[in-house]
Design a binder for these strands. Structure first.
Lengths: 141, 141
DNA sequence: GAAACCATCACCCGAAAGGGTGAGAAGCGC
DNA sequence: GCGCTTCTCACCCTTTCGGGTGATGGTTTC
């Protein structure tokens, strides 16, 4: 959980509660003015709050997915450098060393060095393992 | 959406509606017996239905996630065999050809053949690309 | 300015991966 | 039986990967 999330949840709750209170007041007025029967009044309230709750629950449950947040703490604790992270992303994208060299604008030997250091820090021996490990540590989506 | 999902959703809705109706009746009785004031009665209904809706919305939104469903149609249309699928899973698990041979109980050359055919069918050239492609096609989680 | 770190690149070497071809055995459908 | 698919394995060859070592130049840090 991050501060942005909490703020958004609080705002969400505030808006929902305000709308609910307002709607309730309006409904109560309608009821007291005898425009609604008792059962209809209660039914409207039940349906409205059930729908509101459903919407809110859906929203809260849906928000976390889709939003990938890179674990910068893990990157720092592993001591991964910028180029190593770029190499990691390109590995996960399925590029070969030669392609990565072209993408990064460096020599293939340089790419190999970065990958070697990357593997040592991730404690893996193959690129597929590196991708798995990086996903576990939330270094890449 | 699969039949199992639909049945479960229908049952879920049925149970929730039944519980809601029952609770409503009970509340109405309490109200008519004048044990509750009007505002408390309406408040209880609103909170209860909001919570119920939230729970339901949460459930509906979270259940589909996390449940991986293999795209058997894609597997069939690509003509992937059982051993090729097993090889694919082991590749995604980060195993080397030698390890896969041990896991599958066959010779390394056999594994290489399966992987060759697999790559041709997936139209990829590297194992990392195979994993990406397979994930896109929902062949593996 | 020395130490530490990062990025860059080179060389060697062995292992792993990938492409191509061929071929035998088992099972299935007609 | 015959064709088809699948699974199995082998051989050869090229490319890619990965490990190890060493070297240079630039930054930052103390």
């Amino acid at each position: 959980m991050f501060r942005g999330d909490i703020i958004r949840i609080v705002l969400l709750w505030g808006a929902v509660l305000a709308a609910g209170a307002f709607g309730l007041q309006w409904l109560e007025y309608q009821y007291l003015a005898m425009r609604f029967s008792f059962e209809i009044y209660v039914g409207i309230i039940a349906v409205a709050f059930a729908l509101g709750g459903m919407w809110l629950g859906w929203r809260l449950a849906s928000r976390p997915r889709g939003a990938f947040r890179r674990n910068d703490a893990a990157i720092a604790s592993l001591g991964l450098t910028r180029q190593e992270m770029r190499a990691l992303e390109l590995i996960a994208a399925g590029q070969s060393n030669k392609e990565m060299a072209r993408t990064l604008g460096v020599a293939p030997n340089t790419v190999k060095t970065h990958i070697s250091n990357l593997f040592a820090k991730l404690e893996v021996a193959r690129r597929t393992q590196a991708v798995i490990r990086a996903r576990e540590l939330e270094l890449i989506p």
